[in-house]
Write a protein that binds this DNA or RNA. Structure first.
Lengths: 361, 361
DNA sequence: AGCGTCTTGTAAACCGGTTACGTGGGATTG
DNA sequence: CAATCCCACGTAACCGGTTTACAAGACGCT
């Protein structure tokens, strides 16, 4: 089938020069008189020569490959991130290998270990669980070759890129307060994480600036998962909370929460205003269309790649942290608080469908 | 920072044997008396030795890495596929490199070229546009190292994994007919593609089996994109089509179409019943929850990896084609056809929200 | 004693590039 | 005219593994 692949030496022989000459010529490390250059070009074409990447990697000590470690690629948020990272990496001449950590320290460490084995040149590292310290040391040990993305890992030095979570919390909080809400619930991610803290801090700043008496009523923390969303929503409803508005810290949590609200016949936004976070899912088409904080996912991916590659080239980026701006996307899931009292969940107030509330302009 | 990484020779020196002995011992190609074995094991541990992958790859001529070529990773459908592929590959000891083709032949060919350069051992190839023949030859030239997934590429020999698109069309068609629809519209993918043809063929089989007079009214073909979905929906509405039901060939197309239907105030399912295809997006939460054909995405990914790896090991799988079963997920977007006449689109029948129809059991 | 056969191991040739160093010859310079 | 420099390229040593070919010693057998 495919003819034997040609090697550098084949080209050299045909061009009647040494392998060194061909290698250096092809890598632009050598000016040659046009005649010789043409001979080499002709030989390359004739043999359809492409350098063997394994040999090149071994010789060069690098592979022009970076790894992206994410908890789960099927998650649309990480998928978008991965797409952006792949794109930018590709443009810079790097291939991308994909690693799903499933949020386990075990696998995360394994992937970092690939660095020292130099299977990949660098890693973009996204985790979304708290670190017990196990991650910090191996990451720091391979300094200049890791950038942290999306969620901080305590104690590592090195370039980091995040979305501006505090701003997200702030924008959401301000909007809710402006709409008249005075009691706000928060379905957060894992408690110990910087992003969760920052979002909460943002809400608090909005409260402080408002000069109103606003309280954060029900704070629930847990995994970025529909399960956690369902749990939050159930606890929220059965607590009989007086909160009239809700900030939900991720699409995944939102999806779970909405399932429960729908099942329990909670009408949005008249009985409860909600704001999402991430805005990756097609929230325009939800019932109602969801107002949401949008994360700058594409830009995060690109910035991370850029920092990593510059870092690999030797720049000292250890102190750089980028916070990329989020946006508030206004849709139909926030209204003024109304008197519509929510019922605690029970077996018999489940409805087949639910009515779509009118939306306040 | 990190101490110099150790090489095989370091281990050999410490263990007081030759490198060949260590290598063969570590690769289980040599039985050694316990005493020697222990010395080597101790030396390995002491040096924290891991073989240099580049050297290994060069020597072995393979890299235990496969590539997944998809049009776009951000697309949740491909993201799910990628997750499944990564998972299965990882379990079989293979790394996965991710390649976004953006549906361009140019890039698809580049990625296939990486095979002959042996940057990767094999490729799982997903395209979703028709091939003009350019793909067939390079793929066939690297036989035993490519598996085609999800959408056929004309003329290639080699293992292939698809979902059972014909069955999908059939299940959708049968359901619609059973619900009383006699005029069905079809928003398809690209016309020339096998998957599109198969789905249409499925509907036709359902019609034939029904012994009813059923017609397929508006067939629109185009890209798997929201834009195409919007275009389909606009043309469909302005054509004043009499179709009472609609099969939409992908989540992406559906998302675009729903935008238009919503904007034009079309009520689902009373004015129009719809069935989706893919069922990756959280359609439960849509308005109304969407009935949909679900593709066996996880299984497709796993099967593709399995076939590829067996193929790499030399098995002759050139004739195997797997069709994996789809399911019909019943939700709320299909009802009996009603008299509710749809209005052609105009500037003044746009509504802010839309009412949620009751759903027929 | 002589011989075949394990066992245990070594030396060296690969894999296919990159690159430090060297060299012959013509042009330039003191 | 010798010394120097530059051009155009060659030689060979890497990179760090795997693997083939082969050898020395132990052991058993005749």
């Amino acid at each position: 089938m495919s003819a034997k692949v040609s090697r550098l030496s084949d080209v050299a022989r045909t061009a009647e020069v040494s392998v060194a000459t061909v290698s250096r010529f092809l890598n632009n490390r050598l000016q040659l008189p046009e005649e010789t250059a043409a001979r080499i070009r002709r030989a390359v074409a004739e043999h359809e020569y492409t350098p063997n990447p394994h040999a090149r990697n071994l010789s060069l000590g690098r592979s022009e490959t970076i790894a992206l470690v994410v908890p789960d690629i099927a998650n649309p948020y990480f998928a978008r991130l991965a797409a952006a990272v792949e794109r930018e990496a590709g443009q810079q001449g790097y291939a991308l290998t994909l690693c799903a950590s499933l949020n386990t320290l075990q696998r995360e460490r394994e992937y970092i270990a690939r660095l020292s084995g130099s299977a990949v040149d660098g890693i973009i590292f996204v985790s979304n669980h708290a670190d017990d310290g196990t991650l910090r040391d191996p990451i720091n040990a391979s300094s200049r070759r890791v950038v942290i993305l999306d969620e901080d890992v305590g104690g590592v030095v090195g370039p980091r890129v995040f979305s501006d979570n505090e701003l997200g919390g702030y924008l959401a909080g301000r909007h809710l307060i402006e709409m008249g809400h005075r009691s706000i619930a928060f379905f957060g991610g894992p408690q110990a994480m910087r992003s969760t803290e920052a979002r909460l801090a943002g809400i608090r700043r909005a409260i402080a600036e408002s000069n109103q008496h606003v309280v954060i009523r029900d704070e629930f923390f847990g995994a970025y998962s529909p399960e956690h969303g369902r749990a939050c929503a159930s606890r929220f409803l059965s607590s009989g909370s007086e909160a009239t508005a809700l900030l939900v810290s991720s699409d995944e949590i939102m999806i779970g929460a909405l399932e429960i609200f729908r099942r329990e016949g909670i009408r949005l936004p008249s009985q409860l205003s909600v704001i999402g976070f991430d805005d990756i899912a097609p929230f325009v088409l939800f019932d109602p269309p969801l107002t949401s904080i949008r994360q700058p996912v594409e830009m995060m991916g690109r910035r991370a790649v850029d920092l990593l590659i510059r870092s690999l080239r030797g720049e000292d980026l250890d102190r750089v942290i980028e916070y990329l701006p989020v946006e508030l996307i206004l849709r139909g899931s926030v209204s003024h608080p109304r008197a519509g009292k929510r019922l605690p969940p029970s077996a018999d107030n489940q409805k087949e469908g639910n009515e779509h509330d009118e939306i306040d302009a």
